[in-house]
């Protein structure tokens, strides 16, 4: 586990805070004085997982650095909904350059801070952030370059499994069978094809960078602990956060966190952390569930649950989840308290 679970206190480890927990055991998000790095008034859709994930992550980074964070942001939902002229939601120094160059822009910022002696005292740190399109596809060259040079940047990918800003098209992070505008639910193999796509956290690990982690918006304490841990390293770090998208996934706006939780509990999305290419901890499944529980509520998988359910496809997805469970050792274990 990436963090010390709260010794039994009703909901301690799972809820954002709890009135009786000592302050040091509460999450950053529980604090009335949290930074709100991304402010109210942003134009994200109702129930946006990315808006939530970004505040979780950047607030945690702000906490870890005493408010000394500069962010570079890829083009995408997060950029568009946060900074349409004449208003910005960001309360931190923030730059948006292009869709595919965020990691490199962050490298430049880090280089500037280093050369000016600002990365040491006060220790201003750089965070780059983008969606899965900006990270796993168009920004991948710059990302890999930043990784291999071990530039002092924390790159955060908010993965919602597609190009949602442009109207829900497929990215290399779109899961198999999912319907997008470019992988329609038609033909003999409706939805996104199996056997394609990439899992960038594993590729990041292959760069042997100091820290790689995955997280979801359903596990706040884990997410915050990972950002905090990432900030303890110098060099290239990568956190890949699953952020459900009500629009693209076809889920009710109130179910954003639930969907992330289901992704983790079914083994669809492995939550782990790795240092220097070695896995150090995984977030075990707490209440094991079949993938169907995760798939069925999402309209992007509606074609799997028609009059004749696509049992073979569902079984195939279950196999992929089972493989994750085996590979990362996600099996449920007894909860200590």
């Amino acid at each position: 586990m990436s963090f010390q679970p709260v010794k039994f206190y009703q909901t301690g480890t799972f809820t954002v805070g709890n009135r009786l927990l000592p302050p040091e055991e509460r999450s950053v998000q529980a604090s009335a004085k949290r930074f709100n790095s991304i402010n109210s008034g942003h134009r994200a859709c109702q129930g946006c997982g990315e808006a939530l994930g970004a505040r979780y992550a950047i607030d945690a980074a702000m906490e870890a650095t005493d408010g000394q964070v500069i962010a570079a942001n890829a083009t995408g939902c997060l950029e568009v909904f946060s900074t349409p002229y004449p208003e910005t939601s960001w309360q931190i120094p923030w730059i948006h350059s292009l869709f595919g160059n965020t990691a490199a822009v962050a490298t430049g910022i880090a280089a500037a801070l280093k050369v000016k002696g600002l990365s040491q005292n006060p220790k201003t740190r750089v965070v780059a952030q983008g969606g899965d399109g900006g990270t796993t596809d168009i920004g991948f060259g710059c990302l890999s370059g930043m990784f291999e040079r071990n530039d002092d940047v924390l790159y955060i990918c908010y993965d919602n499994g597609g190009y949602m800003n442009t109207g829900v098209q497929r990215s290399s992070a779109t899961p198999p069978a999912a319907r997008t505008a470019t992988t329609m639910a038609v033909g003999p193999e409706p939805g996104n094809v199996f056997g394609q796509g990439k899992f960038v956290p594993a590729i990041a690990m292959a760069h042997n960078i100091p820290y790689v982690a995955t997280a979801t918006v359903a596990d706040l304490r884990d997410l915050e602990a990972k950002v905090r841990r990432a900030m303890e390293f110098r060099g290239a770090r990568y956190i890949h956060i699953l952020v459900p998208c009500p629009l693209g996934w076809g889920t009710p706006s109130q179910d954003t966190i639930k969907m992330a939780r289901l992704a983790k509990e079914t083994g669809i999305f492995p939550v782990f952390e790795a240092e220097h290419g070695e896995i150090k901890s995984v977030l075990a499944i707490r209440r094991p569930l079949p993938v169907e529980d995760y798939l069925r509520p999402q309209k992007r998988y509606a074609h799997l649950f028609g009059k004749t359910p696509a049992l073979a496809t569902i079984a195939h997805i279950q196999e992929l989840a089972d493989r994750n469970i085996r590979k990362y050792g996600l099996q449920a274990r007894k909860e200590g308290h």
Binding site: N101, A106, T107, C142, S144, G145
Partner: peptide, 28 residues
Amino acid sequence: SPCEFINVESEFAAMSVAIGSAAAGARS
């Protein structure tokens, strides 16, 4: 010195790094 010399992976990255460094106040 002081100067950060960065071997980037492409010209696109070269200009992008310069964008970042210039925005952070470094002569690039």
